[in-house]
Design a protein around this nucleic acid. Sequence first.
DNA 1: AGTATTAGTGGATAAAGTCCACTAAAAGGA
DNA 2: TCCTTTTAGTGGACTTTATCCACTAATACT
Lengths: 145, 145
Amino acid sequence: MNISNDMIADIRQFNRFYTNILGVLDKHILDTGYSFTEARVILEIGLMEQCIANNLVDKLEIDRSYMSRIINKLSKDGLVMKENSILDNRTSLIRLTPKGITFFNQINEKSDKQIVRLFEGLSQKEIKEIHASMLFIQKKLDSLE
Amino acid sequence: MNISNDMIADIRQFNRFYTNILGVLDKHILDTGYSFTEARVILEIGLMEQCIANNLVDKLEIDRSYMSRIINKLSKDGLVMKENSILDNRTSLIRLTPKGITFFNQINEKSDKQIVRLFEGLSQKEIKEIHASMLFIQKKLDSLE
DNA sequence: AGTATTAGTGGATAAAGTCCACTAAAAGGA
DNA sequence: TCCTTTTAGTGGACTTTATCCACTAATACT
């Protein structure tokens, strides 16, 4: 085996630590009045620009009927619009409304600010090193999947 | 500001990536028939060795009444035992039973194996570098709190 | 002693998520 | 083509998870 028990313990400790960091960073989502799941849906629609419900189901691993209800709620709230697809009459093309885009942007700006906040107190050099460490970890672990 | 927009984007990308990793690593918890929350309680009791319900409430940020129900369930299931405190008659000292300790150990072993699995395919050198990166990130970000 | 706080509990309810059965459209054969 | 199978989406019913509140009993405070 290439990995010692001490290393495993350290890595698991890092995971607990970073889970915590992620929790702190994401908490602001709930200030919007939407749940994490709903916010994930909104953000994913924003990223995809246009999609159908099933794309979101696959990508976010959310139950189809649950997704249907979430999209309806978001649609009622005016964050999302559904347009009948011409190519496939079973589906609707889903997009953010201007209000949805505003929401999307606000979340993103807030998330960016959270990162700035997390790193304030560190020197430029330290930040660069952390950044490099993250890229490195991601590159190495990503290559395995 | 010490941190560029590109870096922020990279870090947020890393966070999404690592959220995913953590999700994969933790999924096995659900195979036990207990929820994440219940498992967190069991693991925390295992770590604390002995505690009262309110310690768990504070540490895990779970509602008091919910905690009460969880502990009762775990007690009914024979994973946890409550012993009346002599010092404070309002409280019970909570501990894992042998069955609970077995559960605790199984979860930990499985989690260790998940780490091994995550890293297999990487060379010893690469693992060492990832390990060092994690320690570095943790050291730097931990110092801020 | 008398008041305030703290620990824990159960009832009621809300929020989140799952399961199933169904409709309607599309895709894939003989 | 017709017929079967698959896919997309929906709503009803339900379970699980979590929260809120009011209450009891014990301890801490002054």
